[in-house]
Design a protein around this nucleic acid. Structure first.
Lengths: 210, 210, 210, 210
DNA sequence: CATGAATGAGGCTTCATTCAT
DNA sequence: TATGAATGAAGCCTCATTCAT
């Protein structure tokens, strides 16, 4: 009467569930305290498990943090891709990608900064966390620069170096994100999306010859 | 013929020299290992002094790091201001400010990132270091937004929110900086300056209606 | 037949046992080296645990020392009270209180001095340890001066200032204690008790007019 | 014209003067902060000399503290002896000795406690300081017990163990001293002298049989 | 002789990791 | 498998002592 041998045993399901719980807890703790003060103790507390349990799911703190980043990154990039597919024009795709990021961040608060973070002063540069950040960052860069490349081909964008262009967009988003996170009552997402897109498309120049 | 105003005793000169040596050592260590792993032990080693000696010059690790940031920030902003005064047009002022930052960073490598850094995931958010970063960042924001405001009045720039505009520029510079720092052989500064200015003034839009 | 109220889990029992072990180790170390040289390292060694373990039981060195004092003080005052209740006459109560102290100290050696110690030259005067000493000392003062007051009312004692009288008794005890502790073979307790009581009741005067 | 070769050269006089200055400074610092917090830095500051200078006069911190104790002890015992010689009766001698101590302590405040201090919890027991304290204490004990012995021979005192009797007196004095030092406005010396002498001669007993 | 900058041993405390239950 | 007590390396800081000037 048992269901036809599921591809995953009950143990595996439980394990995956716990893993996700822990990663979420890590996300919350990092968001609240920052990387530097996110201790295993605190993460365990937040996850409602014992400290030792964390080591049954992750081999080290480094690994746990790296997975937490990866986890959130997956979430975010999935949303971004989905959002861009709902519209046609590349300007609109860009707009929706920006909106997806801002919305995601609104849900996950401060932690989110780390997603677009690069290997930074704060983190041991040889570390797994650093490599994960770099990898995630690169993936997002490729995603955005893909939009730019195809948008340039379609004539909607100037033919700028797409990698550079993508980087710039990401930085601008992060900058605005930071403000939003600092604000107790940030403006609504739409208005910030427009600010970014307007600036990103037209720059600050008055339009005359340079 | 010698001036009768010694103004600084030999001891003061020596003290200032040592202070600068330590700050430079700190700058190198932070550049190499990041904030999180910059220990007093390591800084002392780099400076060629004993651990205890650091405490003759700075009352705590926090204070030392904060001063290292401040020290570099002063250098950089001084250069930026000077550079902008050598030219008239606001677009040129902007260009020279960007160049000053890139050049300064070329000399001080990775540490430099911290200068434009804001209180970040890596750093205890209540700390003196965090406050110093915020202060420095705010000062640079005011400097750039001053340029934007006056440039807008002169008709060279669109009337965007100057604080936002300044933030965006700084983020773009940081983004490029990061690439330069990662590159073993970064392109020459002029070319990167043009990339930034071009993007910053015109955006990536093709120019049609949005 | 067994009680159904476990009241304390096995973990709590173990915890209490360890706590007591550590406090005893601290007591020995303080007794051996004095407060000033009682380091956490040394206490951990004496207790047979790692340095870090101490911090699972006490939040700081101060707290550990303060609890060690408190721990021993509780022991001692409990015994003193019990001893005084076994006899009627106030002179006898006094005698038994003195005996309790001397006996207790015989068991706990040098550390014991600290129990009757007041915030002293050796200890940071604002510290928790200092406050604990003061508190303990005051409690003992009240206990003794209670005996004096009631004994005076019963006509057994002269109506001296009871607080002063209590202080004097404690100091006399301490003085004798010190000798006992210094001696490898102190005289038996009874004889010292009589010495104290005799002196305390009659003074050194020959009895004529002053 | 120079005075006929003084027994001490000018250098020696200066040296002795400096030595005394430093010892006084140490006395003040110990009185203010206690032994545990009396650092060489602080003593040098108080004495108005450089830290290194202290080591020209004393070979170590230990030695300096021991000499400071010795120095103050000499002062005090000299006064006590002188005071006892101004009167005949042993009860009066005792009274004057007590008064000398209280008066001396009024001048030198908290530091004074250390004079009657015995090797204590606070101090490394093998140390020079500990040995100095013991020595000083013993000397004072001998002084007082001499009074008691001779007073007993003259019939003024009961024939108690003179060493014990001396100890008890010293402890009683210390106890009162402590109160005086804690009080912002201690009662006048005379009244405390009488309290001590009254208690010391007659005890607290009501006079009936024990 | 005097100075005070420099030293470095040693003290307190934190926290990632291990392991017996 | 989960726990959390125990561990000890490593970090920050203090201060007695030394020594070049």
């Amino acid at each position: 009467m048992q269901t036809s041998r599921p591809s995953r045993t009950k143990e595996e399901v439980v394990k995956d569930f716990r893993t996700a719980e822990i990663l979420d807890a890590a996300r919350r703790v990092i968001g609240e305290l920052g990387f530097a003060d996110a201790s295993m103790e605190r993460i365990a507390l937040e996850a409602g498990v014992a400290k030792g349990t964390l080591y049954r799911y992750f081999e080290s703190k480094e690994s746990l943090l790296a997975h937490a980043l990866e986890h959130a990154h997956r979430d975010m990039i999935t949303r971004s891709r989905a959002a861009t597919q709902r519209v046609r024009a590349y300007r609109d795709k860009l707009r929706e990608a920006v909106r997806a990021v801002l919305e995601y961040s609104a849900e996950h608060q401060a932690f989110y900064q780390a997603l677009l973070e690069r290997p930074d002063l704060s983190i041991d540069r040889e570390s797994v966390v650093a490599r994960t950040l770099t990898k995630n960052f690169e993936e997002y860069i490729r995603f955005v620069s893909g939009l730019l490349t195809r948008g340039a081909r379609s004539g909607e964008f100037r033919p700028v170096d797409p990698r550079r262009g993508a980087q710039f967009l990401i930085e601008i988003i992060r900058s605005l994100l930071r403000e939003r996170l600092a604000d107790r009552k940030p403006p609504d997402v739409d208005s910030d999306v427009e600010t970014i897109i307007d600036f990103y498309l037209h720059g600050v120049g008055a339009g005359g010859l340079e």
